[in-house]
Each structure stands twice: as structure tokens, then as C-alpha cells.
């Protein structure tokens, strides 16, 4: 006798489905709730608490930390510097990355994979190691200074400096820009450029009016991928900038782990305002770039 499958699942089957779904999701979701969501909520709580004289947190709630943020130049400057460095890094990455992605797309297909790998390999190495490599290059007795001495310019103090930090940041995040641009450009129909030239458009016009708007999604994605980690980092500015280049990450690191006494409520407020600003900037950026498309 053939079994006829019923159209509606019997109730015990639905129950079994729910039970196995729960079994699959519950452990991971629980882990993320306890060790990711809850910690973020605790940061919110800390940001309203009071910092005791020895750095011990006192549980009386007020807006002191937020008030301090708004009144002290130190914090204001750190925000400005972080966002400016983030924008500079993103711009430089775009200027280097766009032609590079174009070069990759125009290469014969067999070579494209190799070129893609060439971009990815340095990116896979440890961030600390990559930053350290630049310290070697830029150091007082390093290769670049030897070259400068040899050509008669003489020894320069290349690091710690803001320029060194910028080089380190661009070096660390360039692949984040190149990969989405590559994806966008490889879907771009190059015959459109010819159509443009047949209609009498110059190279610049064709680039600005055809290629750039059509590859904008890649540029937007790349910018966000470069911008977010750059604004929040502290290793590169710490190692290549010394104490000279204070970004938000450096302040946060000191407020939480080093400064005497530490100030967790202030650090929490600093981090939350940072997250809010970051979200605001990214959303604004998405808005303005998608409106251009219309």
C-alpha cells in the first residue's frame, strides 16, 4: 500500500520542527546575547555612572561623563582627528584603489585571479606585523633614510609622525577598497564607454558621467569598509604616531586600561558617542550617494 503524504503537517511534526530549530539556534544566540549584546548594554550603564577618585566606579547615575566630553578640547580634538584621518585614508585608498581595480579588470581573465591574489596576500598577514614592517622601513637607520642620505637630502625623522600613521592606515586597508571596486568594475559594460566616445564625449566626461556613476556601489561599499575600522583603530596610531597622534582609539585604550586613575564612565560615554557619530556618518554617506544615482 502506498503512503499518501498529508498536505498539512501533523501537529507533532510542527512541534518537532520547532524543537530542532530551537536546538540549532539557541546555543549560538545565547552566546551572542550574553557575550556581545549584554556587554554593550553594560557600557551604556557605565556611561551614566560616576568615576571615583581612585578610578573605582561609583554607582550613582548622572550625565557628568557626557558633559565632560562636550567641554574638554582633548576629546573634541580626538573625534575630529579620528574622523579626518578616516576620511583622508578613505580618499587615498579610493585614489590608489580605483585605477588598480581598473587595471585588474582590464587584464586577461587568467591573470585576473593572480592579480587578485597579489592584493589579498599582504592583507592576510597580521595587522601588528604589517604595522611593524613600516616601523622598520621608516626608522632612523632604515632603508628609506639610507636612500635619502645617499641622494643628499639627509636623514629625516619619518616616524613617529602623522604622515607615518596615514601610510600605515592606507597600507592596512587598501584591499578593503580594491575588492568591492573590482567586483563593481567587473560587472561594468565597457561598450558604454565606446558609445560615449562615439557620441563625442571626452575621456574625462566618459569617466565622470558613465563609469563613475555605474561603479558607485563598489566605491560606497569600499569607503565604508575602509572608514569604519580606520576611525576606531589604535594600534597604528600608537606604533607609528607615538604619543603625537592621539586618535579616539588611543584615548579609549588609555581610559580603560592604563591612565592613572582609569575612567570607565568617561570611556564608555566616549565610545557610545563615537558609535552614534559613526552610524550617523555612514547612514548620511549612504543616503547622499544613493540619491546621486537617481
Amino acid at each position: 500500500m502506498a503512503m499518501v503524504p498529508s498536505i498539512e503537517a501533523p501537529p507533532d511534526q510542527t512541534q518537532r520542527r520547532n524543537r530542532s530549530l530551537f536546538g540549532l539556534l539557541a546555543p549560538g544566540v545565547l552566546w551572542l546575547l550574553v557575550f556581545f549584546v549584554l556587554p554593550l548594554l553594560i557600557v551604556v550603564v557605565y556611561s551614566f555612572a560616576t568615576n571615583g577618585p581612585t578610578g573605582k566606579v561609583i554607582w550613582s547615575f548622572n550625565l557628568d561623563s557626557y558633559r565632560l566630553l562636550l567641554t574638554k578640547d582633548l576629546y573634541y580634538n580626538a573625534y575630529i582627528r579620528s574622523f579626518v584621518m578616516g576620511i583622508q585614508t578613505t580618499l587615498i585608498c579610493a585614489l590608489i584603489g580605483y585605477p588598480l581595480a581598473l587595471h585588474m579588470v582590464l587584464a586577461p581573465p587568467a591573470r585576473r585571479t593572480v592579480l587578485l591574489f597579489l592584493i589579498l596576500i599582504p592583507f592576510w598577514t597580521n595587522f601588528l606585523v604589517r604595522t611593524y614592517a613600516w616601523m622598520l622601513l621608516l626608522s632612523n637607520n632604515g632603508i628609506i633614510n639610507s636612500v635619502l642620505v645617499a641622494v643628499g637630502i639627509g636623514k629625516q625623522m619619518l616616524f613617529p609622525s602623522e604622515g607615518a600613521v596615514l601610510v600605515g592606515l592606507v597600507y592596512g586597508s587598501l584591499p578593503f577598497m580594491v575588492l568591492p571596486l573590482y567586483a563593481s568594475l567587473s560587472r561594468f559594460d565597457f561598450t558604454l564607454m565606446e558609445a560615449g566616445s562615439d557620441l563625442g564625449a571626452t575621456v574625462v566626461q566618459r569617466f565622470l558621467r558613465i563609469m563613475l556613476p555605474l561603479t558607485a556601489p563598489g566605491l560606497v561599499a569600499g569607503s565604508v569598509l575602509v572608514f569604519i575600522p580606520t576611525v576606531g583603530q589604535f594600534v597604528v596610531s600608537d606604533l607609528l604616531g607615538g604619543a603625537k597622534v592621539d586618535m579616539l582609539g588611543n584615548l579609549l585604550q588609555r581610559l580603560f586600561t592604563r591612565s592613572n586613575p582609569p575612567n570607565w564612565p568617561l570611556g564608555s560615554a566616549l565610545a557610545l558617542v563615537f558609535m552614534a557619530l559613526l552610524t550617523f556618518v555612514v547612514v548620511l554617506y549612504f543616503r547622499s550617494t544613493t540619491e546621486e544615482d537617481r
Binding site: 556581545f36 554593550l40 553594560i42 586600561t257 570607565w264 564608555s268 565610545a271
Partner: peptide, 19 residues
Amino acid sequence: PIVIPEIVMALALLAFFSF
């Protein structure tokens, strides 16, 4: 956890453990 700045997740975990 993929998009959030790493340092924010790090300090949140420190705050969480201490708390």
C-alpha cells in the same frame, strides 16, 4: 560583531567581565 569597531567590542567585554 563583524561591522562594529573592534575596540568598542573589546572595551564592552572588559566592562562586562569586570561588572
